[in-house]
Structure formats: C-alpha cells, structure tokens
Design a protein around this nucleic acid. Structure first.
Lengths: 213, 213
DNA sequence: CTGAATCCGTTGCGATACTG
DNA sequence: CAGTATCGCAACGGATTCAG
C-alpha cells in the first residue's frame, strides 16, 4: 500500500500512514492553493528529487487524496474533497511551526504557495470583518500572489490583478506578520517594497494577517 | 540538528523538520495524555524499535518539545508548553485519519493513550454542556481510562476510579463513536461490555463523543 | 519540454542483542 | 528498567536517462 503501517487502530496513525511520508504534506500544502502541474509542484519544492515527487503523487492518488485531472491537453494534480479536508491539519502545523522559524537562512526560499498558506494561517476573519474589502498583490521574485480580503472571507490565488496595494517582499515578511516589525519600519528598511497603490494599507495588511511568534 | 531540512522558510516545513520524522508525533500523542516513563512509551508504541524511541526522545528534547523530569527517583518524559501546543495538530490529524480507519485488522492494537486522544478529538463540548456531569471508566484489556465529563470540559486520565458507567471495549468502539453502531447494539453484540453502573449511559457517551466517518 | 523511470551512493529505519 | 550497539534493508537524495 501507501506506507509502512504502525500496527495501531488509531486515527492519528492512519493519518500518518497516508500523509506522514517525507514531502507528502508539502505537496498537499501547495495543492491547497490550487491545482498544479507536475513541473509547478517540482518548482515549489526545489529540493525534492523527481522520483520522490512521482512516487508521492502516485501514493497520494491511491490514498484518494489527490487526482490527476486533464485540463485542456495538460495534466494537473488537484486535491479530492477528502484531500481538501487536510487544510485544518496543514494550517495547525503551520501555526505551530511559525513560532519556531527563527530568522531566514541564506539557502532558504519562500515560495508563493508557502506564503499563500501562511497567509491563510495568519488570517484573522473577525478582525477583517470590520475592515473595508481590500485586494493586495504580493510579489515574490518573478511570481505574484493575489490576496483578496472581503469581510471575513479570504481568497489567495496565484497571479496578478487589480490591487489596492502591490508590494514586493521576501522571507522577512515573517517579521511583519509576527508583529516583530512595524509596517512603517518594514517599508523604511526595504523589507517590503511598495510597487503600486497606497503604502499605508500595509498597516491594514499587518492587522489582518497576524500570528504570534 | 534534529532532522534533514527542506530548504524552505515556511512554518509547515519547520514543523515537519521538528516533528515530521517517523514515530515523533505518536510520542507527542501519548505525552499529551500525561507524563510517561520510557517503558510506558515503549508499551504504548509496541512496534517502535528501542533505538528509535531513544533517538526521538533526544531530538524532541533538543527541539524544546519535551523534557526529562525526575519524579521521585524515576525519570518521566513530559511535554513542554511548546510541545503541548501541538495538541491542535494531533487532534486535527486524528479527526482526518478517523475517516480512513476502516475496520480493525487482526494485528492492530488500540492503546489507552490512543483512545484517550480519540475521545478528545471526538468530544463535543457544546453537546456535553447540556448533559449532566458524568464519569466513565473505559477498560482496554488490563488498563483503564477514566473519562470525566463536566459541562463543556473533558478530562481523560489513565487509571480507574468511581464512575457512573464502567465498560470494557476494544477497537470496535470506533463504530460506536462514528455512529455506525447504536449503543444498544454495541452492548447486545458484545462490542461493549458493561462492567458496572448504568448501561443506558452508553447512549450519553455516544452522544458526547461523536465523529463522522 | 513536461512527466516521469532508472541507477546508485547514502541515510534512516527495523529487529535483535546487549549493557549500566 | 532504561537505554546503547550492531547490522541488514528499505527509503531517500542526486544525477542521468527515457517516453509522450
């Protein structure tokens, strides 16, 4: 089957048998943002060996967590409904690990899909509900993330589009979300570079997305 | 350090670096129920090699997730505050994996600590709030679990004690919690054996602890 | 050019034996 | 009882090659 089993009749062991192998939950993490092609997954997981990626995709498919879907000539991988139910697991892991991230090291990358999930983790619906609807465009190197907040609802997708504030950032955005770095200081120090729109909206961004470190 | 890293600056990768190794989260699972000695952990994880248990304990300790604590001459392992913050992760995994458990196989065991966490996962505080305070004693083979429900609060510990209902059960209790098996049928078919107290309270138990499959 | 399969060196795991 | 030591094996990591 999928993996070596633990010999216990328990939900946690079952879950770990299905998604406990190395890299598996990171594939799920990226697919939670949207369907991805093989190459997109490989790009979002720069250090995964291609044989491992292929093996995981096969295992996750057999476990009913994702499926291969043809999309106008090309194959994309997308989560099944059961796979999407892993979102609380991934968000809980992200919230817990957020506190142990420390400072970014030189060799560490921040991928768009990882940031998308971090934003979902850090999103405070009850805070956002009292703020005006806002669209942010966050750029990480070449790729962009479109972040739409409307009342208590959040949608994060890849790509660009009309936004009230467009900014470029890197791994240090972690310190903005943790509250370690004030929005004003983030712009001054170049951690966040305002590309278009109202830079003062970064304040609202930091209020909307917050996770204690 | 603890483990091979993923090369990403992301909360989820960080979490998986700390607790993503095989067996690690199962050690955390058991310690969430209470402090445990080395031998108790080994007994609760029948298939873990002793060298792996020793290695994981060392890694989890270095990661600040657990600590060795002397308790009147013997050493016990207990979670640190940061380790206890893994509870949402473990419960979310348990809830997700619960749906994929299927029927118990011959070689699969149900340990007291695993059941304790399953009960925490399946606990419905808002339902329990409207029911009288109740103490259950659940026996799995030799060891017992004391389950105290008082309004919306739940405490599950090892051991025996005064209970409104004491019963013996095995892995098939899964079908009671999932609602697949009605409490009356569970007693009739011997899946649950009433040892002491009011057997009709099993109804309340099944209402209090419920997780869809 | 994307989506893998193959080969092979390395590492972590599993089983058992052993020690303070 | 609480670990440590050893060894075979399976999984992982990296590079290369192959197929649609």
């Amino acid at each position: 089957m999928a993996a070596r089993d633990y010999g216990q009749y328990c939900g946690i062991t079952r879950a770990l048998e299905l998604v406990g192998e190395r890299w598996a939950l990171l594939i799920v993490r990226d697919l939670l943002v949207g369907p991805r092609r093989y190459g997109e997954l490989a790009a979002g997981l720069p250090r995964i060996p291609s044989n491992i990626l292929a093996a995981r995709l096969k295992e996750l498919q057999e476990a009913g967590i994702l499926r291969r879907a043809p999309r106008s000539r090309v194959i994309v991988y997308e989560l099944t409904p059961y796979g999407r139910e892993l979102e609380p697991v991934v968000l809980a892991l992200g919230a817990w690990g957020f506190k142990a991230m420390g400072d970014p090291r030189e060799e560490q990358v921040l991928t768009p899909d990882a940031l998308a999930i971090t934003l979902r983790t850090a999103f405070r619906p009850q805070v956002a509900a009292d703020l005006p609807a806002t669209a942010y465009a966050a750029h990480l190197g070449p790729t962009g993330l479109l972040v739409r907040v409307d009342g208590p609802s959040l949608v994060v997708t890849r790509g660009d589009g009309p936004a009230d504030l467009a900014f470029a950032a890197g791994p240090s955005i972690h310190r903005l979300i943790s509250g370690e770095l004030a929005p004003g200081r983030a712009i001054e120090t170049g951690v966040v570079e305002v590309l278009r729109g109202r830079g003062d909206l970064l304040d609202r961004f930091a209020t909307t997305f917050h996770l204690a470190a």
